[in-house]
């Protein structure tokens, strides 16, 4: 696990240094703007921030920070990277959890109903909705929601982070998009399980339909769904740049993208480290949940 995380940081670091463009120039622009920038100013930043050292020396310096328990300082505003990330992460977590819940509340019931009543009007309605949800780009849906609910109805604020009213529009934007995918997956997975012999057996022995669906079919159909939910959750935790940008939400995705454009290596590395760790942890959680859903899956070490 440590190897994966370390590998990711080495890869990010070298990739960032191979990207074309002069990092000192990009940092100067991010700090002071493009008007009246001079070559001397750029050279000053190069020396101040140690960008004239070889790449491996720069990576070594960063690693040294990590070993000593901090992530260094931002090359743009000089603030502690760990503080930046700790400030953004709760915002991202809040958005991620809320969107996930919205997505599941929509997706699981609609998916199951569509499968159980396959080819009914309900099924078609659900699948059409899912198709629209999948095809609707986030940035467009987000702006439409803002126009309708904030400008015309004036119910919710346009953007920013604050109380629950600030959370609703971004969560709906993200949640419905994800729900569309999860609904389709739940439906197809349920359909497959419902055709299995043990479902027929369960019905044959006279179990109530509710139990057949809820206990036998649903739990077994959940394995692929949990995998995709885990992935979706990990992606949400990495930040959702577009939604964060539209709604001016101070999340980790925007931090990362802004830092990449500004070549703020310290922040990029810090984000890469955190994101890699999250990804590994979420995958671990998904693997563990398989064992709960399907007791045949065991992770014991064979002697």
């Amino acid at each position: 696990m440590l190897a994966i995380v370390l590998g990711v940081t080495v890869l990010t670091f070298s990739l960032m240094h191979f990207t074309p463009g002069d990092p000192a120039e990009m940092i100067a622009i991010a700090r002071y703007g493009m008007e009246d920038l001079t070559q001397e100013g750029i050279e000053w930043i190069r020396i101040q921030e140690g960008l004239d050292a070889p790449v491996w020396v720069q990576y070594g310096r960063w690693l040294n920070h990590v070993i000593h328990g901090d992530l260094g300082r931002s090359l743009i505003d000089g603030g502690l990277v760990s503080k930046d990330i700790m400030y953004r992460f709760p915002a991202t977590l809040q958005l991620a959890l809320a969107s996930m819940i919205v997505s599941l509340v929509i997706a699981i019931p609609v998916g199951i109903l569509s499968a159980v009543k396959q080819n009914s009007a309900m099924d078609y309605l659900g699948m059409t909705g899912a198709l629209i949800g999948v095809s609707m780009p986030n940035f467009w849906l987000g702006l439409l929601l803002v126009l309708f609910f904030s400008v015309y109805l004036g119910w919710f604020p346009v953007c920013g982070k604050g109380g629950i009213e600030h959370l609703i529009l971004p969560v709906v934007t993200l949640g419905t998009g994800m729900a569309a995918i999860t609904t389709r997956l739940t439906r197809s997975s349920m359909l497959e399980v419902l055709r299995q012999n043990y479902i027929r057996t369960a019905r044959a022995k006279g179990l109530a339909e509710k139990l057949v669906i809820g206990k036998h079919a649903f739990k077994n159909a959940m394995i692929p769904v949990v995998t995709i939910i885990g992935l979706q959750f990990a992606f949400l935790l990495e930040g959702t740049v577009i939604v964060e940008t539209i709604f001016a939400w101070p999340g980790i995705g925007r931090l990362l993208v802004d830092s990449i454009f500004a070549r703020d290596f310290a922040v990029i590395q810090g984000c890469a480290l955190v994101i890699a760790t999250i990804f590994v942890l979420v995958n671990l959680a998904v693997d563990i949940s398989y064992a709960y859903l399907d007791p045949r899956i065991r992770y014991e070490r064979r002697a």
């Binding site: 700090r31 002071y32 703007g33 493009m34 008007e35 100013g41 743009i76 505003d77 000089g78």
Partner: peptide, 9 residues
């Protein structure tokens, strides 16, 4: 980005 006045621009 920086509390200071920009040295240029």
């Amino acid at each position: 980005q920086d509390y200071g006045p920009p040295p240029w621009g």
